[in-house]
């Protein structure tokens, strides 16, 4: 559907498009962080792309990729759509921990809050953002909860829990009533069992590797235009 967009991007931006993919019809173009703003502006302004609809901006954390020296830690993605041509594209870039990415709120104003959310959840900073502060979590919150190394059972209560006996008890009823599964898992392990219901807990406990370091993008693997 939006093959044309990918081709147009490649033709116009040339070497700035590091890689493309079209897994199950979802077209994607990877750019370097320094070309992020330019690529976003191009897909909005170019007459053939006309991506006037900002859908979402989000991020993915691959900590093992950075540990093994295979690339920067985070993927940042923006999803854009054209309401006149009814096609969509996903732009992606890789950002290292601590590096700032250019804000694209000047391209799509709606990206402003999405960038705040990414900052809130992953701690990725956006240069030239007008108001970069937490949007969902409270200001007292320490750390970034959607990073894979945020302890999975860690909470930071605003109201201290009551100091009575048995406050850490398991829920007062069984799994038929929606007892949380990770606590079943946790409790099972405390009693010497080997149930692995929550992959995320297992990963953080070092019992299993994480599922993915993200897709490989090497320049020589870039598929040429057909």
């Amino acid at each position: 559907m939006s093959k044309k967009v990918i081709e147009r991007l490649k033709a116009q931006l040339g070497g700035k498009i590091l890689a493309t993919s079209d897994f199950r019809g979802d077209d994607e173009a990877v750019v370097a962080p320094k070309d992020w703003l330019e690529a976003a502006r191009f897909v909005r302004d170019d007459a053939d792309c006309a991506m006037d609809h900002f859908i979402d901006l989000t991020a993915v954390d691959y900590p093992e990729r950075a540990q093994d020296g295979e690339g920067p830690r985070f993927d940042v993605l923006v999803f854009a759509r054209s309401s006149t041509k009814n096609h969509r594209v996903r732009l992606k870039t890789r950002v290292a921990e601590g590096a700032a990415l250019d804000s694209i709120f000047t391209v799509w104003a709606g990206a402003s809050w999405a960038e705040r959310e990414v900052f809130d959840m992953f701690g990725i900073t956006f240069a030239n953002h007008p108001d970069l502060r937490r949007i969902l979590m409270y200001p007292e919150f320490q750390g970034f909860p959607l990073r894979k190394d945020y302890p999975i059972e860690k909470t930071q209560p605003l109201v201290p829990y009551r100091e009575i006996e048995g406050i850490d008890k398991l829920p007062p009823f069984g799994p038929d009533m929606g007892q949380p599964w990770s606590r079943v898992d946790w409790n099972e392990r405390l009693h010497g069992g080997d149930v692995q219901v929550s992959p995320a807990i297992g990963t953080q406990q070092g019992q299993r590797p994480s599922l993915s370091k993200g897709p490989e993008y090497l320049p020589d693997e870039t598929p040429e235009a057909e």
Binding site: E153, Q156, P171, P172, P180, W181, S182, R183
Partner: peptide, 8 residues
């Protein structure tokens, strides 16, 4: 008990 929202 928080249900399946066993999170931060």
């Amino acid at each position: 008990c928080g249900g399946f929202y066993d999170n931060y």
